[in-house]
Amino acid sequence: MNTLPQTVVRPEFEASDLDAANHGDVARRLTAYERLSNMDSVRKFSILILFIAAWEIYTRASGVSHFLLPKFSDTAVALFQAIWSEQLLIMVWNSITILVTGYAIGLAIAAVLTTAAITTRFGSDLLSTLTAMLNPLPAIALLPLALLWFGLGSESIVFTLLHSVIWPVALNAHTGFMSVSETQRMVGRNYGLRGMTYVVKLLIPAAFPSILMGLKIGWAFAWRTLIAAELVFGGSISDTAETQSGGLGWFVFSNQMDMQIPHVFAGLFTVILVGIFVENVIFTNIEIKTVRRWGMQTS
């Protein structure tokens, strides 16, 4: 019988020290330090500063060869030098022109493919077969073929960029269009929308979150492909051009070949800055003005 649970009678007691239930000061004003450290940007900025300081101190104190890891100050100087006297901005502009060309043509082709896919079953099958096959193929692997077909020049890079943009954009846009709810479609038809107006006024806004996702992935792949292509073959491409061209990737590569390591870091900084600008300024603004304003996506 002792397996049955026993009732436990706790002894009566009186709390003698009620002060323990004291709340403390609830409405205490935060100190200046606490308020400062509660600001997100201040904390993140100080982490960045700390990181840079650690870098500078480490390189100075350990006396590591500046061929392996240059001082931060040297890198900053190299960055300014490159901008003022070594046409770094022109190189950035070269890269961006190629990128925008490839991206725009890629978007146009993706739009045609997606239109074919949503209007006919054959188009839909064609698109899904092509994306299943070509999406896992890294665009950079096509560069040797592109060089063979289009020769050394920006055409080859644009060709590889096309390949890196088309498939993710078409894939995402297609899934976006397919998952527009039947209710919304019927509302559109009730308003008498048909053909192009139906697509522009109803399907595109309804599928915009996933189209935007495709655009972002396409951008990320294209940016990576461009830098890789320039790193590798940018040299041969710039050799054939009359003007001093070559892009950002070529800047990194040629400085590495010349053992100008501070300039390599300066090039990497520029790559990061361009990336941050596109992701956090351009895409975030598009997001704020469309999907967040329409209440399709929070935060």
Binding site: Q256, V264, L268, G275
Partner: peptide, 16 residues
Amino acid sequence: MFNPLPAIAMLPLAML
């Protein structure tokens, strides 16, 4: 900071 940096751009440094 590092997500927008294509990994392949680190290759010259990595080789060093």
